[in-house]
Write a protein that binds this DNA or RNA. Structure first.
Length: 495
RNA sequence: GGGCCGUUAACUCAGUCGGUAGAGUAUCUGCCUUUUAAGCAGAGAGUCGUUGGUUCGAAUCCAACACGGCCCA
């Protein structure tokens, strides 16, 4: 028999024994009086005599993480929902024969309730002197190793509960994730943005260029697509008069997995009427600085060993200029449409039907510029060809009023002044439709007539932006992989 | 889709040139009332990812596959 099976069997035997003795191994009537983080915060500064003078009982509940047993006494550590651990001291002469016998039967991983007083040991460790104990939940499986914890990444993702139990830094990352989203909401609420929820299941998936997931509604007998972006719905709301809206929610894209991509990911999108993409550059600087300052207390952060300064204002760079200034492509090549397309092909870029200079610009940017953009940088002057929802620039109709933000070589945000000319929008949708019919599955399969209809009612001049929340969390928690900031990242099924 | 790396006890990891599978933690037994990854003595625990192949003999060499990681498309 394997040791895992044997441990499990032994614990089930203990479970049966406990029940026979009238002990409920899943007892549910224990109310802790304190959390361990509060105990530490409040009582860590106190010395031994002060603690003993307290004359106060504490009821603590948590998981047994470590045991050091002696003949007639034991030290153990319990960890509670705060993620903190506290040492407890259980003595036979204090808790009595019966309770001590029960304690001796407990296993690492069991959830217990302790009641007792605080004191300091010889080595001055804050410790609970247990007067009475209650088994709250029997654990039937062994805990990972107490010192090295759980390092196997596959097990950490598949059994995140174990990861959270034994790797405290994981809990911290997800606590920070929650704080980041809370700060983003605070910032936007402070500027009069209204949080909304728009459909995750859409009949025509729009607002981005990506292959969607397909599902089916039985009662309506219709095909629905998990949304690739909320954009077209949020702009309908601006047409309706909700002039500042935002949504933080999941998008779904039917793509491969990577260190930066999970098929479901969290996106912030917001729209502000009577603003332009230039206003949003300022807003983005302020938003990211607000979140970082309140989360970390500084705007100078380290990401994977690289110092990054988030202090506004950030560098602004034209896409074509960046190819020369950062990518090292001679300006005469950047200007020459044919030469640039030739260079793109030489660098291994494949251009599909209808794609040319614009696509070559953005692909060469991805290859030769992006990797060098460590410090926050807005890239401007995106080609019309790759921006079907953006407003054309008034002076240069080849480009649109759009920026993307790069930090630590990653695209963090994408924003533009919205196209609100319904006829222009219809034409661009028709081009996308033609591309879909030519086999491009990343293009929408149908023309969103209702969205065009909404524009015909009049979308006020508006600017909108999307910020990848997972990537922002990666940046602010110094996490190398998107899997480190998503609790249950997508994996292949185990076999 | 392509390349490279990994997969050995529940966990963390060794395993030499192809020759009976190892350690620490955890578990079990005994001792132990202020320990700090507690200590001491002993015990049990393995489909070496899977399937084939080479070989007298495979954790080890070869192939395919699975899962994971990284890089590229």
């Amino acid at each position: 028999m394997s040791s895992a099976d044997r441990i499990s069997d032994q614990r089930r035997e203990k479970l049966a024994e406990l029940r026979q003795q009238g002990v409920d191994p899943f007892f549910n009537l224990f109310k802790p009086s304190h959390s361990i983080d509060r105990i530490k915060e409040q009582y860590e500064p106190l010395g031994g005599p002060e603690l003993e003078g307290l004359d106060q009982n504490f009821r603590l509940a948590g998981r047994l993480m470590l045991l050091r047993e002696f003949g007639k006494a034991s030290f153990c550590h319990i960890q509670d929902g705060s993620g903190e651990r506290l040492q407890a001291y259980v003595q036979r002469q204090v808790v009595g024969e019966e309770a001590f016998a029960l304690f001796k039967k407990l296993d690492l991983g069991d959830i217990v309730g302790f009641e007792g007083t605080l004191f300091r040991t010889r080595t001055q460790e804050l410790t609970l002197a247990v007067k009475s104990l209650t088994l709250l939940t029997k654990s039937l499986k062994p805990l990972p190793e107490k010192y090295h914890g759980l390092t196997d990444v596959e097990t950490r993702y598949r059994q995140r509960y174990l990861d959270l139990m034994v790797n405290p830094q994981v809990r911290e990352v997800f606590a920070k994730r929650s704080a980041i989203i809370r700060l983003v909401r605070q910032f936007l609420e402070g500027r009069g943005f209204l949080e909304v929820e728009t459909p995750m299941m859409q009949p025509i998936p729009g607002g981005a260029t990506a292959r969607p997931f397909i599902t089916h509604h039985q009662a309506l007998d219709m095909t629905l697509y998990l949304r690739i972006a909320p954009e077209l719905y949020l702009k309908r709301l601006v047409v309706g008069g909700l002039e500042r809206v935002y949504e933080i929610n999941r998008n779904f894209r039917n793509e491969g997995l990577s260190i930066q991509h999970n098929p479901e990911f969290t996106m912030l999108e917001f729209y502000q009427a009577y603003a332009t993409y230039e206003d949003l550059m300022t807003l983005t600087e302020e938003l990211v600085a607000y979140v970082a300052q309140n989360l970390l207390g500084t705007l100078k952060i380290t990401y994977q060993g690289q110092e990054i300064d988030l202090t506004p204002p950030w560098r602004r760079l034209d896409l074509r200029e960046s190819l020369t200034a950062v990518g090292g492509i001679p300006p005469e090549v950047v200007r020459d449409r044919e030469a640039l397309v030739a260079l793109a092909k030489k660098e291994g870029v494949t251009l599909r039907a209808g794609e040319g200079y614009g696509r070559a610009l953005t692909k060469l940017f991805d290859l030769m510029v992006e990797v060098h953009l460590q410090q926050p940088t807005f890239i401007l002057g995106y080609p019309l060809e790759t921006s079907p929802l953006s407003r054309k620039n008034d002076t240069d109709p080849e480009v649109v009023d759009r920026f993307e933000l790069f930090i630590a070589s990653r695209e963090m945000a994408n924003a533009f002044s919205e196209l609100n000319d319904p006829d222009d929008q219809r034409q661009r949708f028709e081009q996308q439709l033609a591309a879909h019919q030519a086999g491009d599955e990343e293009m929408p399969h149908a023309l969103d007539e209702d969205f065009v209809n909404a524009l015909e009612h009049g979308l006020p001049p508006t600017a909108g932006e999307g910020i990848g929340i997972d990537r922002l969390v990666m940046l602010l928690t110094d996490s190398p992989s998107i899997r480190d900031v998503i609790l249950f990242p997508q994996l292949r099924p185990e076999r």
